[in-house]
Design a protein around this nucleic acid. Sequence first.
RNA 1: GGCGCGAUGGCCGAGCGGUUAGGCAGAGGUCUGCAAAACCUCGUACAGCGGUUCAACUCCGCUUCGCGCCUCCA
Length: 468
Amino acid sequence: MQFYNTLVRHKEIFRSLAGRQARIYTCGPTVYNFAHIGNFRAYTFEDILCRTLRYAGYEVQQVMNLTDVDDKTIRGSRQAGVPLKAFTQPFVDAFFADLRTLNIEPAAVYPAATDHVPEMIALIQRLFANGLAYHSEDGSVYFKVAALPAYGKLAHLDLSSLRTGARVAQDEYEKESVGDFALWKAWDASDGDVAWDSPWGRGRPGWHIECSAMGMKYLGETFDLHTGGIDNLFPHHENELAQSEGATGKPFVNYWMHCAHLRVNGEKMSKSLGNFFTLRDLLAKGYAGRELRYVLINGHYRQPLNFTFEAVEAARTSLARIDEFSDRLAEAARTATPAPELPEWAAAYRNLFNTALFDDLNVPEALAALFALVREGNTALQATVLPPSGAAAVRALVADFDRVLGVVSFGRRGANGELPAKVAQLVEARRIARQTKNWAEADRLRDELVRLGWEVRDGKDGQKVKKL
RNA sequence: GGCGCGAUGGCCGAGCGGUUAGGCAGAGGUCUGCAAAACCUCGUACAGCGGUUCAACUCCGCUUCGCGCCUCCA
């Protein structure tokens, strides 16, 4: 299995620190607003990563932080006139609900920044001890970038060439150097009652320090993987790395992985541009979580992905085809137990699927293998050359693929025996109409069933009814 | 200005120095009372210009266009 490691800018064989365990830290949301589906691209990406690791036999220990104190959450809570926690909690809840909607498997721990201030303070003290931190006159604490020669190794940025743009150092005159960043921010009036005591006076933690402190607390001073959106590469991850390694003197993370942005009309989807959709916006338009998930995983994670409604429509049709296939397999399998060996063609597609996935999470290629399986499987079913045990085995394979993909809808009920009385009645009436070649009546009954939400298909062995 | 990505058929989107990506949409067919589902067939896609090579969508250079980051954005 290999992943593209941003640290070295090429793919590397994945070797975990502890046997079949994989420890991974994922930068989570800042809970000042509803996350949009651009944000969720990052979470479906890390989900595919974790699922792939599990699929490959790793035991995954994942931590995702919740940033619940920063400029935006403070501003929001003050505007709303409620305490910080009361302001952020609904967005935390919404975030978790959205994760479920997108079938993103939960992390083991979701530490909140506000619950880990002591750990952050302790870490800052270590940085002082190592000569990497200093405080300014106003009581803020900064990281001294110049004291860490390796600074810049992740983002590959040369600080001396930094453009002095609008975003640089407008409010931070206290720093020794523009590259220095806040570890601890002294309280000011705009913080209201959001403040913690520290050896340097009242204030609040800087943004980056929470991930260093919480990552180390839950995963150790060195762990395997760290994920996030590409926009977190700099400054956030660079700074996180500097703080962590500056404090411990050990490597912080072995593999850094970043996903590209979701775009709308060729531009990054972002709150500041206003060109975003939240998950609830899209659900309200009638799209399902798994359809959106499919759209989000259907491009390679390191490639920008253009969001279009046509793509969501295509996802719906594609998924229906996969669902249909799995239903047909279930029907053909009946009660048979899966054969110990897959049919040869199915085994070949499993290999393709695994190879694609294990090569830096190439989901588009893995999906191509799935569709190849669908086509060949349907052909086999049509020719009735697939014995029940073979159908069961192939269906198990689809389920196995879906451990990673998380998009298939299994077990839709369609057996005639379980129909509501009214539906069963119409089906029987239609059977008689067909028998007597009363096509007009048969068509009328079919339309009526559709109105009731049931699809009828005529086959060699009579009618098949499915819930729409 | 610095660093970095990208340009693939109607849409989405992989990929590789020589062999079909895949999905959706569209056209034709098989099956069917019709439909649906399924299957089969169908598109001389690789931004432009040069170069390397027996061979380039794939490597190199240039051009055009687009995008991202450059100090609290996933």
